[in-house]
């Protein structure tokens, strides 16, 4: 059994060297991602690529940029929906929007926006609340390829039933089909939805503070990080929010144990909506 444990330790060492290599070669830092998840993703790529171990994978990753691009997609978080957790959006409408209505202009940041589903959800919500003209939405992700998907706003047709059900449950005011056109395989979101959206590259693991935001959405991203990186990112959000600004996390993400919690009050426990104190 000692031997099996040693093999696992060796494998872990190789994996850490792979992540170190990726960071030094390409600047993408996955060293502080949650390890069990990262390993599962890399294991998948290793198996389908016919590589024997992570040392071989390191070699291929640093010499073969196309291979690295596929690794980058594997390590990106890309499972999301429009109006994911509809009750969350309902709470945004009822609790956050009234505050936004008091501002002549406000900024919203979707950090780790992936393929943009949650960005467009918020764009729809703000349009329905007649706040579109007063807002600037920033949508950022570290993965340029996923970001370019987000810019297009084209999603598989089979996802639309879920999106529509979510939209209705979230308290949507229109017919969801007003917001897209469909062909036989895709739904194409109305381009006017991104008039107020700026897509850009930003890496939460390595980049810094982002503007003076009124609302930050970062849902189901922190769970992929280890405690240290979670703390770094929460600091970054705290510094990027204006006083009275809102931070929205994923349902299973919490600021409870973070040192930045003292700067926030929890305004919706189940929905994980926090508000930065005015001091």
């Amino acid at each position: 059994m000692v031997k099996k444990k040693q093999l696992l330790e060796n494998e872990q060492l190789e994996l850490e060297l792979l992540l170190e290599g990726i960071y030094r070669r390409y600047g993408y830092d996955f060293r502080d991602y949650a390890k069990a998840h990262t390993k599962r993703r890399l294991e998948y790529r290793r198996t389908i690529s016919g590589l024997n171990n992570y040392a071989e994978m390191l070699h291929q990753a640093i010499y073969d940029e196309d291979f690295f691009t596929s690794l980058l997609l594997d390590l990106s978080i890309n499972v999301t929906e429009m109006f994911r957790d509809p009750w969350f959006y309902k709470e945004v409408r009822e609790l956050v929007v009234p505050h936004l209505k008091t501002y002549p202009f406000f900024k919203v940041w979707h950090a780790g926006c992936s393929a943009g589903q949650e960005v467009y959800s918020m764009a729809i919500l703000l349009e329905e609340e007649e706040l579109k003209e007063r807002t600037q939405i920033y949508a950022t992700d570290f993965n340029e390829r996923i970001l370019s998907q987000a810019k297009k706003g084209i999603y598989p047709l089979d996802s639309i039933r879920q999106y529509t059900a979510n939209y209705l449950k979230s308290g949507g005011l229109q017919s969801f089909s007003d917001y897209y056109t469909a062909d036989d395989r895709h739904v194409i979101l109305k381009s006017s939805l991104r008039e107020r959206v700026l897509f850009s590259s930003h890496n939460l693991a390595t980049d810094g503070v982002f503007g003076e935001m009124n609302v930050i959405f970062c849902r189901n991203v922190l769970i992929y990080f280890n405690k240290e990186l979670q703390e770094r990112v929460l600091q970054l959000f705290c510094e990027s929010l204006c006083p009275g600004g809102f931070l929205c996390l994923g349902t299973k993400e919490s600021m409870k144990f973070s040192t930045v919690m003292e700067h926030f009050e929890e305004v919706a426990a189940r929905e994980k909506i926090y508000r930065k104190k005015r001091r």
Binding site: Q12, A36, H37, R40, I77, V79, K252
Partner: peptide
């Protein structure tokens, strides 16, 4: 494990959740 989340165990014997496929 919470509904709609994967539950993982880290080597350090801590829990981790993901919303992977």
């Amino acid at each position: 494990a919470p509904p709609n989340y994967h539950l993982l165990v880290e080597r350090a014997k801590t829990t981790a959740l993901t919303v992977d496929a």
